[in-house]
Amino acid sequence: MANDPIHQFQIQKIFPIEVGGMDFSFTNSSLFMVLTVAATSAFLIFSTSGRGLVPTRVQSVSEMMYEFIAGTLRDATGTDGMRFFPLVFSLFMFVLVANLFGMFPYFFTITSHIIVTFALAMLVILTVIFYGFMRHGMKFLKLFIPSGVPGALIPLVTMIEVISFLSRPISLSVRLFANMLAGHITLKVFSGFVVSLSAMGALGIFGAILPLAMTVALTALEFLVAFLQAYVFAVLTCMYLNDAIHPSH
């Protein structure tokens, strides 16, 4: 059981809650969602409690995150897109901290579940669709008809555009989910090798050096991936929001 790489993704009920036949139990996943939100909020609020003109180290971390996402969003959508800044910032911080929490041993990685990443992706896409129609009405559909395309090609191009639009929530959610899942499974498998090999005597301990080195390297890689996937999620969110703000491209 200890070597099972899938075990870490299992959801365990902590407080069973059932409403009308639906299972809303407070699980280890829920616990880590609460911890992610609590830790991130506490960090951002306490690090800035000094409101220092000259920032302390932790305050400059919060400021850096804020300006980093603000810059990304402004570059992608212009000043019009700044109304979505709280959404993009929340998504980035939530995914980033959830990914980083997943790097602690025995911690549950909430972003390794497709339903969570899909829900976040749908939040983005529904925001894009809702805001797009609210602001541009039917003109929002111009998104699917690129300008400057010859008349005969319009049905084909439009079809491709629609398919690409519909695949966005899937690619957005699967990218994050698969990266987290695959990374954690690989880490677990390699560290499992270390444990089982070193149990096989002196030769086994010698043979365990290679998977141990791999585990160390993969841990570093996973920290990079944790940040990178949060950033990719935020950047793609910005790009999709840009479509809602400026649909004709």
Partner: peptide
């Protein structure tokens, strides 16, 4: 587990 995850994600997020 989807209902529980969605429920708690909605609340926490």
């Amino acid at each position: 587990t989807f209902a529980s995850q969605l429920f708690w994600l909605a609340i926490t997020f």
